[in-house]
Design a protein around this nucleic acid. Sequence first.
DNA 1: ACCTGAACACCGTTCAAGT
DNA 2: ACCTGAACACCGTTCAAGT
Lengths: 198, 198
Amino acid sequence: MTGAIPMETSTARPAARPMRADARRNHDRLVGEARRSFAEHGTDASLEDIARRAGVGIGTLYRHFPNRDALMNAVFQDALCSLLTRSRELAAAEAPCRALVEWLGAIVTHAGEYRGLAHALMSASRDATSPLTQCHQPLREAGAGLLRRAQESGSVRDDVSIDDLLQLTNAIALAAEQSPDDPELTDRLLRLTLRGLK
Amino acid sequence: MTGAIPMETSTARPAARPMRADARRNHDRLVGEARRSFAEHGTDASLEDIARRAGVGIGTLYRHFPNRDALMNAVFQDALCSLLTRSRELAAAEAPCRALVEWLGAIVTHAGEYRGLAHALMSASRDATSPLTQCHQPLREAGAGLLRRAQESGSVRDDVSIDDLLQLTNAIALAAEQSPDDPELTDRLLRLTLRGLK
DNA sequence: ACCTGAACACCGTTCAAGT
DNA sequence: ACCTGAACACCGTTCAAGT
């Protein structure tokens, strides 16, 4: 019955029609080249360079990705997917506290994967409309579940929120990024934070 | 005897000759206008704007301050001085742990005073030659003393360094800056960190 | 000695013209 | 429908000419 409500059809997103062959190819080349450039120069790599190296006009880049966040998003989507899978595995694990700790470690590692990503994540968290924030939303919810479980089991304080934890993990990733000569900084800061969770 | 070693005279910095009157005036106007602009637009405010508002050519700005860090440094020197004074008071305080906690709070507040400052401090900490790092050196040493005292009194773990703490406080200030709608974030994150110090 | 501002190099973004 | 690249706006930095 409810499934037959007419509004459904207007609310449902239009079927994503397949891209024209050349558009599809350009799209993929851009994402690939952006991944290379981000890895090499950080996430503030020149967009013009990326377009040129992908053998495409700068306008084409903007047609596919209206802003830098959208491009970053496309680049990080793979990593995001596997993180989400891992999150769901952890949600089913026995020890709630250990699961949360592992999840936080994975988040820090992710944020530190590309130079500039941690900073972008922190800035993006301000507005909910940013594609970067949108795509991290499911991950945030998975983390919220892990945190709640750990709190209910009594192993983590009640007065911390998932947003506090995410801000802190991003901050730790950023700090580590600024001190590349100290590879254990991340671990030390994370351990410090975890102790504070009680 | 040792006071009479001739090398002394060559090592001593040359007496800072007084600036020409117009140069002095331009210098002061630039610093004043930079403070205004940094407060309004963050520390990445346009240098050209600052020069124009100070009624000075852009070349004059560069003559006085070879790079943005140097200008920021001049702007923040006052705050730095009072922080250093406060640090020395705290070093003489009775309770070593409370002193350290207060100091860290003051540091976070300082780093959050201007939008962009926390980030600049984190980036600058990479190279010891940056004027921003140079000027924070005495402050770092004061903090190291406070930390050592707290550790010797047994109230703080031995396996944390002053650099870890500074990275973390800068990171917390940065996180707070990105969430202006949550004025208590700084306090919560700082408390969390402090608990981790044991 | 110090100041000025035109000139240069660079980057992000838009949009009219082309296929 | 999609692509191209010239054009625009902006910013940091330098340097020859001026006082």
